[in-house]
Simulated assay, not measured.
Amino acid sequence: MTAALPPSADSTPLVLKTLHAYRQGAVLHIELNTPEQGNAVTDAMLDDLLAVLDGQEPEVRVVVLSSAGPDFCLGGDRTELARHLAEDPAGGGIRTSGTKARRVCEALTTNPAVTIAKVQGKAIGAGFALALACDLRVGADNATFRLPELALGLPTAWGGLLPRLLSEVGAARVRELVLTSRAFTAHEALSLSVLQSVVPPHDLDTAVTAWAKPILRRPVAALRVTKALLHAHTAPARLADASALDSELMASVLAQAHYTQSPRQRRTVPLD
């Protein structure tokens, strides 16, 4: 049974500008829902994600993160980034946005429920980070991934992406992906453990259900403890995790670029 969020009678329904979120029993579905903009990550989307994840009910055992339209997420919103820099060339708005991004990705990674990313089309930059923050990731065979930050003059510093990627994939391969900024396919993503399953686009929902069904049968307490243990045992691999500095690094690099660029260059700052 599908329920609006939040389903309790004494709660005020969330007003979501960029997402479609609903409950199906113990499964919480969160769909990025700005396909006309490639589901680009904005401050409004981060606020919506935080509202849904912070308000998640204890009965939820599986969270499915998906998106509307042909692409999962084309990265951060360029126009909003340029506006942040115009309003505060020192990078204050970028720091605030970066802090929200880290909170969203941590909420997915440390979620007591099992989080599943369902990826189709392009997953670029911030979109890649959102998918990687989930426990399980299934991709359509037309999915592609890219970390374009360095090619765009930016550090790979969004939402704690880099330490997660190093932990999941390994330093040698991550170094190549980050330094070249090249795109790679779903099947290569599978070989790198960026994805755990690749299926035809029409089988994405079936693949998610195949994962969710046995999870929903597990005792709640055991499931939550197992999730906590998995997180605790992977955390030592990220003991030197500097992702708390992501927003500061991004703001510092962009602020410096802003001061050294011409006015024309400033109007074309990218973030995907």
Rank of each mutant, 00 (worst) to 15 (best):
A157D: 10
H187A: 14
L65R: 02
A82L: 09
E36Q: 15
R175N: 10
L74R: 04
H258M: 03
A207D: 05
F145P: 02
D47S: 11
R23M: 14
A222F: 14
S8Y: 11
D141V: 03
T99E: 04
V15M: 09
G127E: 04
E80W: 05
S252A: 12
Q196E: 14
P148Y: 11
A40V: 14
D203P: 01
G139R: 07
A157M: 01
D241I: 03
T180N: 14
F184A: 04
M250D: 01
R182G: 13
H187F: 10
L46F: 04
L14K: 06
H233P: 09
E106K: 04
R238W: 05
A183D: 10
H187Y: 13
W158Q: 08
A126Y: 04
K17F: 14
N142V: 01
S11F: 07
D43H: 13
A207S: 15
Q24M: 09
V64L: 02
K17Q: 15
V52H: 03
L147T: 15
G38D: 00
I124R: 07
S193K: 10
L5N: 08
G75Q: 05
S191W: 03
V104W: 00
A255M: 09
S243E: 08
V63F: 07
L190A: 07
A183M: 08
P148R: 08
E168T: 15
D135H: 13
V220C: 06
T115F: 05
A9T: 11
G159T: 11
A101P: 07
L65V: 01
F72Q: 08
I30P: 11
A113R: 01
A44W: 06
A117D: 01
R175V: 08
A151C: 09
L147G: 10
E248S: 09
L229S: 10
A68C: 08
L192G: 05
V52E: 00
V15L: 07
R61I: 12
V198P: 01
L192A: 03
G153K: 10
V41Q: 02
L152I: 13
L195Q: 02
V62D: 07
A51T: 07
R267Q: 15
L195C: 03
D241F: 04
G75N: 11
T206I: 05
L74D: 00
H29T: 09
V169T: 12
A101N: 08
E31A: 15
A222W: 13
T110A: 12
A26V: 05
L223Q: 05
A222S: 05
C105M: 12
P7M: 03
